[in-house]
Nucleic acid binder design. Structure first.
Lengths: 186, 186
DNA sequence: ATTAAATGATATATTTTTATATCATTTAAG
DNA sequence: CTTAAATGATATAAAAATATATCATTTAAT
């Protein structure tokens, strides 16, 4: 039992390092990934039989993290600005472990993963639609578009934080204000 | 002379098809690219000695297209909304030929290309800064951020148009309004 | 301390990708 | 029509990536 947990933790650590390596160079070979993680190529193959298995595990883990984040957020929060701030504050620290949900390259065409992604999207889109009904958000724009913009913007701010162009603590406010208020001076 | 133009046109056509192929599958092999373009792998190598040469040419061509688009746009247009609408209308039809400027995967670490990208960015950033001074755009946000958001949003709408989620003609207004006005209902 | 499992290094095999060479056929120009 | 260049198909070489096997060493559990 504790043995199994040890293995699981090691696997998680490996996943995290593999993710970081691939975020730096999406074309990294398995050998490069193993070196980066400080393990032998043989061990990498023991944990993940093939490249696809690794990519799938990374994607799945990324979805785990997002799902966990959503658990912590109150979707009944009536103020959409507070809601957005809360969720984005939660998501930003996930950093490059999220890279994979954005980069098409890694998209594993897997029914289960796609389904999970769609479920996440659906929760947001419904929340957005509610806010459209009660006039907090514009009604002349599709909720799906707003959702995609939100995630797209989060990916952009991740890069900013990663590149040191912005402090993580300032990120949520910038993202929320950009999305809700736009660039226009009023 | 006309012989040379024939070759150049053929090369352009090949570049376009290669780009489309890579946009669909960024890990496409050279053989897949050649097949997609309906030419032999030998011919592909004749035009582009190696994979990097091809990627470099694609990136360069993409920058050509953006630069050409900028040429058509009046940067002295004082109304920033009209300016944004104009430039985005110009950029959207470039479609997946632009994919490469967004996807990190293809980033060729090439001084010349980086320089050209930076020049393009600089023109926009200066325009944005001017609009901040005359109170058309918010002053509490870095111009660089607005620029990155703009391109990021254009990439997103490209996907929408490509996937048939949106008519190309409706795209510019949505992008401009999203960026300038935000999601908030007011 | 002993034992069994896991690991990393290494060697090696397999597969895939990239690159080059050859040649008959097609194409464009004069 | 003739000629020279360009092309695509094919073969093949070279390189890179992926996968498997072996084994001495390390590690964790008892």
């Amino acid at each position: 039992m504790s043995n199994k947990n040890f293995k699981v933790n090691r696997q998680n650590k490996l996943l995290e390092l593999a993710t970081k390596c691939l975020a730096r160079n999406p074309n990294a070979s398995l050998l490069e990934i193993a070196d980066f993680a400080g393990i032998g190529i043989a061990t990498l193959h023991r944990y993940f039989p093939g490249r696809n298995d690794l990519l799938h595990a990374i994607s799945s883990k990324a979805l785990d993290l997002v799902e966990d984040s959503l658990e912590k957020v109150d979707f009944t929060q009536p103020d959409i600005r507070l809601f957005f701030t809360r969720i984005i504050t939660e998501l930003i620290p996930l950093g490059d472990r999220m890279y994979f949900l954005a980069a098409d390259i890694f998209t594993i065409h897997d029914e289960e993963l796609t389904k999970r992604e769609m479920n996440i999207a659906q929760r947001f889109i419904e929340k957005i639609k509610e806010s459209q009904v009660d006039k907090q958000l514009r009604n002349d724009m599709k909720a799906e578009w707003m959702y995609d913009m939100m995630f797209n913007t989060i990916f952009l701010i991740w890069k900013y934080v990663h590149d040191g162009k912005m402090a993580a603590k300032d990120a949520p406010e910038l993202v929320v204000s950009t999305l809700l208020d736009g660039f226009r001076d009023d």
